[in-house]
Design a binder for these strands. Structure first.
Lengths: 150, 150
DNA sequence: TTTATTTGTAATTTGTATAATAACAACAAA
DNA sequence: TTTGTTGTTATTATACAAATTACAAATAAA
């Protein structure tokens, strides 16, 4: 299986819109150039983000906008928008039901995996898109300062 | 199913060994029958678990044994043994380095993803193989009680 | 109004990670 | 010595993410 980068690409996409708004035209093509993916993938992700009410887009015009401030969009909001209910830990649903272990393992693991998944998602809920953008800007500024010095 | 179930299958495997020890021969074939996978997959998982010092096996003889009590084996021990350093959230490593976002997104996400991953792994560290086995036994007993009543 | 550009979406193809299968050497026990 | 098992590698099959292709619908500029 190819590993999904939809979550990371969606954070990238939303950050790009905020950082480059008003500076360059925000077409699916220019965004795809930064993520290095296809424009179709960008539009598919934007479609999911729009359905989750995180993004506003206009059919025909390249002008995507955040539906609310970056301080009010968490990484969990984005994760749920594009990865839906994909589990963090995969349960094997095809086991022998006539076996003591095989017949009881799924609901058992479900319960324990849930604890770990909730812990991870709680952290994602605390981290905002604004935190990601701030970090990107700081890193870029540091990069430029180092460059002009050396 | 092509999504990896190595973690779940490994918990299943170890639970099976504890539950059925001394009752049926613990060959890779009988274990595979419960997980509904191939005997080769079972031996590959046992190989990883052995390298992580969670399991003891003997070449040629079907007699796998836990290397330490189930109370002292955590789900995190098992996860690390068979999934190694596989990230919980996948970073897109191919982005445009000449873009403010594309050039800084990886270390930024790495940092935030780490927080969520640590939270999940901390939970997995708290859950022991013994907890899983206890739950399986309770569920099986409840199932049998209901059956004999109805 | 016409033309060019873009979004939005579906269908198909391609690439790749995972598991199944096949094959066999090394070892153990009857 | 025979049979059965573990341990390992190589090959094939399968599932799914992403790329590609295609095109309708919307927008904006000429």
């Amino acid at each position: 299986m190819k590993i999904s980068t939809r979550f990371s690409d969606s954070i990238h996409l939303l950050s790009f819109i905020v950082v480059y708004k008003g500076k360059i035209p925000l077409t699916s093509n220019t965004i795809a150039g930064s993520i290095q993916t296809s424009p179709v993938m960008v539009r598919q992700l934007m479609s999911d983000l729009r359905k989750a009410q995180l993004l506003k887009t206009t059919h025909g015009t390249p002008n995507p906008q955040l539906a609310r401030p970056a301080e009010k969009i968490s990484l969990l909001d984005i994760y749920l928008a594009v990865e839906k209910d994909k589990p963090l830990f995969e349960i094997d649903h095809s086991t022998n039901p006539d076996c003591i272990v095989g017949g009881n393992i799924q609901p058992t693991l479900e319960q324990f995996y849930q604890q770990a998944e909730i812990a991870a998602k709680a952290k994602l809920a605390q981290i905002k898109l604004a935190d990601v953008i701030d970090t990107i800007i700081v890193r870029q500024t540091e990069k430029e300062a180092k460059k002009s010095k050396g």
